[in-house]
Nucleic acid binder design. Structure first.
Length: 502
RNA sequence: GGGCCGCUAGCUCAAUGGCAGAGCUGUGGACUUUUAAUCCAUAGGUUCAGGGUUCGAGUCCCUGGCGGCCCA
C-alpha cells in the first residue's frame, strides 16, 4: 500500500556515506558552477594526440602550447598548493593534469579538492608541460567537471570478484585494462574473419533468428511467441538450413556471423547465446573447409597479436601456425584404447571399453554415438594443439555426406584446440532423397520425446529438391575462437554474458 | 539434477559460540612535483534473507536466494 499524502522519502537519505557525499558534491556543482553534466567541453586534442605530439618533450619543460583535453579521473593526489590527477580516455590513453595555486587561484584549487572525485569526467585547459619527474602533463588554467560520478570506483589494485566483473562489466572495463583489451581483441578477430572471407569472395548474409522450425543442429531451443501470427517461434539454434537455401539459390560462397541460442547448461565454456560463423562453399568439401578454417584462425591470430603464436593470459604460448595435425576419429580412438576399433566395431565391445574407464552409457546410444563419447572422454582433453578429427559415423551426422570411400562414415571434421571444439565442417549432403530419409528419422526421434531432435523442415527439403550444388560447409564458434586466442573463459570473451537476476 | 565451498563496510578480505575488525576508499587537517604519495585525526555495518538452538550466533542447525568448483 502506498501512502499518497506524505512525500516519498528522499532516496539519498538511505545511501551509504560515500554516495551521499558525491550527491552533495553534484548539488554543489549545480549551484556553484552551474552544471555537473555540461553538454560538452571545448576539447582541442585527445589524450593520445597530446601524447603523440609531445612524446619527445624533455623532463621539466614547458612547451608553450595550450591544449584542452578531457578524460575520466582515475588517479588523484592532492597536496597543499599543487594537485595531480591522471585522466584516462576511452582508448585507454592516460595523461596527467597538474593544478597549481599560482595558475588556477586559491578558490578554484579549493573547488578541485572539494568537488572532484576519482571516477569523475573532467575537462582541463592549460599548457602542455612535463613535470620534474618527466610526466607529460597539462598545467591547468581552467577546468570543469563534465560528468560527476555518484558511485565510487572499486579499489584499483585489488581484483574485482569474478561475479562483480561479469555483472558490472562497465566497472570492470573502467578498472581493468585486460577487460578493455578483450573488447578490442574480439572486434579485431571478428573483423579479421569478415575480411578473410570477403577476400575469398564469400558473401555475408543474415538469416532468420526467429524460426518456425528449428534445425541445423542438435540442441534444445528457446521458445518465444509471435502475437501477430499467434504461433510459437524458436530462436535459432543454427543458421545452417537457411544458408543452404541461399546456396541452392546461387549464393555460391556465403557466410553469416551471428548469434545462436541454445537452451542448455551455462558453464565456463557454454553460454546460452553464442556467436557463430557458418560458411558454405559450392564445389568445396571438408578438405577445402579445413584449409579455410585454418587460414581464418591463423589470420585472426595475426590480426589480434601480430603472430600465429599467441600468448595467453597465463603467459603460455599456443602455436597456431603451419599445417595442423589431422587424424581420424577411429584412428585416434584406437590409439587411446590401445586396440583397433572402427565404425564396424560392435556396440557391446565399445560398451566394455566405456565400462572399463568408468563412463556412464546411455542405452539409447548406438555404436557410433558410443564411439564419439569414448573419444570425448579419452582423447579430447589432450587435444591442446589445433587438431582436425575426421570421418565421423553416419549415425551421429544426419546432415553430412557419406564418406566417398569408407562406408558407414561421413565426411565431417571437428576442430579441437585447448581441449575444446572450435569448429566443425562437412562435405554437405545434397541428395534430397537421402536428406529426407535422414530428417524423417530425426523427426521420429523427436516424436519419441528427444527434445534435441529436429522437426521435419519441409521447406528446406523443397529447396534441396531444386538442387544444391556439391558444397563444403563450416562452422566456428566466435567465443571459442577468442578463448583459443586469449586462453580466457567464455564469460571473459563475451562483453555482457547472461547472468541470473540479482 | 547431485555433491562441496562461499556470501561480513563503497572495494578486497579478517574475526575459538563471548565488545564486528584491517587495508584501500571516504571525510577533516598538513604538504608546490605526486606516480598504489606520505603524515595526523575520523566516519562508515539489516554480517545475503527468513526461521531455529543458546544466557549469548557473523560463527551451530533448517529453509530459501545468489555465486564458484566438481560430477551427471
Amino acid at each position: 500500500m502506498t501512502e499518497q499524502t506524505t512525500p516519498p522519502i528522499d532516496p539519498a537519505d538511505d545511501l551509504p556515506e560515500q554516495m551521499r557525499v558525491r550527491r552533495e558534491k553534484r548539488d554543489r556543482l549545480l549551484v556553484e558552477t552551474g552544471d555537473a553534466y555540461p553538454v560538452g567541453y571545448p576539447r582541442t586534442a585527445t589524450l593520445a594526440e597530446i601524447r603523440a605530439r609531445y612524446a619527445e618533450l624533455p623532463t621539466d619543460t614547458a612547451s608553450g602550447d595550450t591544449a584542452a583535453v578531457t578524460g575520466r579521473v582515475i588517479f588523484i593526489r592532492n597536496t597543499g598548493k599543487l594537485c595531480f590527477a591522471t585522466l584516462r580516455d576511452g582508448d585507454g590513453t592516460e595523461l596527467q593534469a597538474m593544478l597549481s595555486l599560482d595558475r588556477v587561484g586559491a578558490d578554484r584549487l579549493a573547488d578541485w579538492k572539494r568537488l572532484v572525485d576519482l571516477g569523475d569526467h573532467v575537462g582541463v585547459t592549460g599548457e602542455v608541460i612535463t613535470s620534474r619527474r618527466g610526466e607529460l602533463s597539462v598545467l591547468v588554467d581552467t577546468w570543469a567537471v563534465t560528468a560527476k560520478a555518484l558511485r565510487p570506483l572499486p579499489v584499483a589494485h585489488k581484483p574485482l570478484s569474478e561475479e562483480a566483473r561479469v555483472r558490472q562489466r562497465y566497472v570492470d572495463l573502467i578498472v581493468r585494462p585486460q577487460a578493455r583489451q578483450m573488447v578490442r581483441t574480439r572486434a579485431a578477430a571478428v573483423r579479421s574473419l569478415r575480411d578473410s572471407l570477403h577476400d575469398r569472395s564469400f558473401v555475408e548474409v543474415e538469416t532468420p533468428m526467429l524460426q518456425l522450425i528449428h534445425g541445423g543442429a542438435a540442441a534444445r531451443p528457446f521458445v518465444t511467441h509471435s502475437n501477430a501470427l499467434d504461433t510459437d517461434l524458436y530462436l535459432r539454434i543454427a543458421p545452417e538450413l537457411f544458408l543452404k537455401r541461399a546456396v541452392v539459390g546461387g549464393i555460391d560462397r556465403v557466410f553469416e556471423i551471428n548469434r545462436n541460442f541454445r537452451n542448455e547448461g551455462i558453464d565456463s565454456s557454454h553460454s546460452p547465446e553464442f556467436a557463430m560463423l557458418e560458411a558454405y562453399e559450392a564445389y568445396g568439401d571438408y578438405d577445402t573447409m579445413a584449409t579455410l578454417a585454418r587460414q581464418l584462425v591463423q589470420e585472426a591470430a595475426v590480426a589480434v597479436s601480430g603472430s600465429t603464436v599467441v600468448t595467453h593470459a597465463d603467459g603460455t604460448e599456443l602455436d597456431l601456425g603451419g599445417e595442423w595435425r589431422s587424424v581420424t576419429l577411429f584412428g585416434v580412438l584406437s590409439e587411446a584404447l590401445g586396440e583397433e576399433v572402427s565404425v564396424t566395431t560392435e556396440r557391446a565391445r565399445l560398451a566394455q571399453y566405456a565400462e572399463k574407464v568408468g563412463m556412464a552409457v546411455d542405452p539409447k546410444w548406438g555404436p557410433g554415438k558410443l564411439a564419439e563419447e569414448l573419444f570425448e572422454e579419452l582423447v579430447v582433453p589432450g587435444l591442446r594443439e589445433p587438431t582436425f578429427v575426421r570421418d565421423y559415423p553416419e549415425e551421429t551426422s544426419p546432415l553430412t555426406r557419406s564418406h566417398r570411400e569408407q562406408p558407414g562414415l561421413t565426411e565431417k571434421w571437428d576442430l579441437y584446440v585447448l581441449g575444446f571444439e572450435l569448429g566443425t565442417a562437412y562435405s554437405e549432403l545434397v541428395d534430397p532423397v537421402v536428406q529426407r530419409e535422414r530428417l524423417v528419422a530425426q523427426a521420429q526421434l523427436a516424436a519419441r520425446g528427444d527434445a534435441e531432435a529436429m522437426r521435419l523442415d519441409e521447406d528446406f527439403l523443397r529447396a534441396m529438391e531444386y538442387g544444391m550444388p556439391p558444397a563444403g560447409g563450416m562452422g566456428m564458434g566466435i567465443d571459442r575462437l577468442l578463448m583459443a586466442l586469449t586462453g580466457l573463459g567464455i564469460r571473459e570473451t563475451i562483453l555482457f554474458p547472461l547472468v541470473r537476476a540479482e
